Simulated scan of single mutants.
Amino acid sequence: MSRRNPPDSPLFSLDPIAPDYALEIAARRDGFWPVAGADEAGRGPLAGPVVAAAVILDPDAVPDGLNDSKLLSAEQREALFSAIMATATVSIASSSARHIDTTDILKASLDAMRRAIHGLATTAGFVLIDGRDIPQGLSCHARAVVKGDCRSVSIAAASIVAKVTRDRMMARADASFPAYGFAMHAGYATAKHRDAIGNHGPCPLHRMSFRPFRDV
């Protein structure tokens, strides 16, 4: 189930300097509550899972400093992750490299997001989703918000949870596959990562449907 809003809907607004709670308030005014934010981390890397998070913030305890995870330092993300986990309802899901290879990165990302949303301990009445696509099969109303992690604090919180979770997963993977430096680059296509692939070939965490692997 999804809901597409007309351009003059209160759910459309100019991008603020930092994300705020306006989209959530507008959804509540329209009769939808509670409101969750959903986002993913890890669409672009050559290795590792894509991780999605869904977050329902407590409107009386929204952590200060929420923003697009890419605009925050690792230390800021870690501190905000702890604050979010202590005050919000959170659900996390992931799609493995093999899942990505058997479908595609978009489908795998949306599937992880759907599972994260459905995994919330409190059922969301409305979900704000970062990007242009809405997962199929949701049991609540939803809308996609372009650059949502810069507009909605709920989406920003989800982006932080997804990013920190994925970075931790890749740091643990580094212990199993130390030749690739996953703790340093989290599977992204850095020069050192590409050199390691050239020297050692792919490991089970690599996405074989991605270049350069699919061209071999």
Rank of each mutant, 00 (worst) to 15 (best):
D20Q: 07
A189I: 04
Y180I: 08
G37L: 05
A189M: 05
A54F: 06
E24M: 05
S154G: 13
Q76T: 07
E78V: 06
P178F: 01
A26P: 02
R194N: 04
R143T: 12
A79P: 10
M208L: 15
R151Y: 05
S152F: 05
C203F: 04
S96M: 03
D111N: 15
P19L: 09
P63C: 13
S13L: 08
L80T: 07
I155S: 12
P7G: 00
A144R: 07
V146H: 01
A54H: 06
S176C: 01
H99L: 00
A196R: 02
R4M: 03
S209A: 15
A97I: 00
Q136I: 11
I160G: 02
A86M: 07
A88S: 15
G137D: 09
M169A: 08
A38T: 09
P7L: 03
A186S: 01
A79R: 08
L14D: 12
R132V: 14
M184S: 11
F213V: 10
G37D: 02
P135Q: 12
F177P: 01
D39R: 00
R168G: 11
H206A: 02
S91H: 06
R29Q: 14
A74D: 07
I197S: 05
A53N: 07
S69N: 06
R29V: 11
V90H: 09
P45M: 01
D64H: 15
L138T: 14
L46N: 02
F213M: 09
H193T: 03
A179Y: 03
R114S: 10
R29N: 12
A41T: 01
F12L: 02
L46W: 03
F32S: 12
G201V: 00
A171N: 00
R77D: 08
S95W: 02
A196T: 04
M169Y: 05
